[in-house]
Amino acid sequence: MIHIDLTDQPIDVAAALRTVEDDGAGAINTFIGAVRNKSTGRPVVRLEYEAYDSMALHQLRKVAEQAVEQWPMLKKVTVIHRKGTLHIGDVAVVVAVSTPHRAESFAACHYIIDTLKQVVTIWKKEFYEDGDVWVAAHP
């Protein structure tokens, strides 16, 4: 019921949603993170995501398991994160969860994406017309 993936291929969002369908789930909640054209006012040309694969997969699974502990009614959880070079509009991450009722699906999806951003060993470098920056690296 937990499906985790880290891929250098474009994420098939429709396929990801199908993995959380469940006859007992009246609610499917999805977060899709996409590449924005600006960062703190600066036009972004592209992003590069680098991952410590084994730890990222392990930590992603832990985050999903923590969500299941907190919301035991979760039927299915899917988290797919992209790595490599991404351009404006590309999908970087998909979190999809299914639950019997909607409130828990919102809460669990929110928890998973917020915790992912804090602990999962993936790094994003933003490229601009005139330079590049590792996001969040410096205070």
Binding site: K117, V120, W123
Partner: peptide, 12 residues
């Protein structure tokens, strides 16, 4: 041990 240095993460 498999050891790694982890700078600030920025996935998502």
């Amino acid at each position: 041990d498999e050891i790694a240095l982890i700078p600030p993460v920025s996935g998502g």
